[in-house]
Write a protein that binds this DNA or RNA. Structure first.
Lengths: 195, 195
DNA sequence: GGAGATAGTGATTGGTCACTAACTTTGCTC
DNA sequence: GAGCAAAGTTAGTGACCAATCACTATCTCC
């Protein structure tokens, strides 16, 4: 297998391990085991553990946009927003994607506290780009986009805490979360702008 | 100093250290140093590192309610919601409070992935209670409370990523975040229910 | 003043982990 | 099939860390 292909599989494995156990809680040994390669070999493919984490985080944000884009291609405004909301709700099943985001947030903060903000700069740039892309897709409404991301963050937290989707805590998300009765909206985006 | 007083100072120190560096990234040595006692003594006061983390997490959620309660005493409905939103925005300065929450979320997930859900059960109970208390305070509106928490989670993420409050990314939070022009609302709560 | 309880420390240990150095294997090209 | 580069491994190192053990100091009550 070429180094480039190996790097790809390392990133995929790293997303899973880092999402589940965080930066400090993940050993390079665990990543290597998942890839099926010896642990020292990771250091031939990446400059260090931090570089693997950064690559996993970038992948995760790119993948999030890919999900949004795929769900909303050809749509605009409220329709696009609803489609992306629904797509994000679908990620609740695939919790690695959501948790890798959370791990990125806390790791960026930790790095900044430690006096380094390199990963923070990267994360803010990527996150800002994601925000702008979503904003364009829904038609430029900043407040609506902010609300969209707000609900996304709450979903992350509820998934992390392990509230099952039947739990009452999900009741406030329209009726999409609890029983899948799609009314074409998710979050409160449609209601808000219709109000 | 009595053991009880020491435990209190350990919890306070632990919130800061865990908030900045996470569970795995925080050494008991670092907590002990901040408290001003020897590292082994922590294990006289608490059963283990996990017990310190749990105590810090509980404290953090209690403190969050305390902030909400203090800000909204005597108020109801939209006024209470606005006051609590404003109070939460004030915590942006005091990022340890917000980051300890985030660390709790990722740690709960990690514990569940590791097959233990003890801290998860505690966290869900406390978080659910916080949600219910806020809901009562704002008058029972589930959708509005959900929205309130959603914006709170987005604030956590933006703080973690280190977006300065002047950054455009905060523009979608009414006009409160950017320039402090208090219009009596925060997030979109007032607009939504008024719509 | 001594007995018991409470507060607190120094030394240590078994274990983990990121990372390195040196070596081997595999596949390609002429 | 020799030469070579890329892919991959085994063995090892220094640092760190949660938890334990055995010990000391201080206070209180009789």
């Amino acid at each position: 297998m070429s180094a480039e292909e190996r790097r790809e599989s390392v990133v995929r494995a790293a997303v899973i391990e880092f999402a589940r156990n965080g930066y400090r809680g993940t050993s390079t040994e665990a990543i290597a085991r998942r890839v099926g390669v010896s642990q020292p070999y990771l250091f031939r493919l990446f400059a260090g553990k931090q570089a693997i984490f950064t690559a996993a985080a970038e992948r995760c944000i790119e993948e999030t946009w890919r999900v949004f884009d795929e769900a909303s291609t050809g749509l605009t405004g409220e329709e696009a927003a609803a489609a992306m909301s629904e797509a994000y709700m679908g990620l609740v099943e695939d919790s690695e994607q959501l948790m890798m985001q959370m791990q990125l947030y806390v790791s960026v903060f930790a790095s900044r506290m430690a006096g380094e903000d390199e990963i923070g700069e990267t994360a803010r740039r990527l996150w800002g780009e994601l925000f702008e892309r979503v904003r364009e897709r829904v038609g430029g409404d900043v407040e609506g986009t902010t609300e969209f991301f707000a609900y996304g963050m709450l979903i992350n937290a509820l998934v992390a805490l392990g509230f099952p989707r039947e739990h009452r805590i999900w009741d406030g998300f329209g009726d999409k979360a609890a029983d899948g009765t799609a009314d074409g909206t998710a979050g409160k985006t449609a209601e808000r702008t219709a109000g």
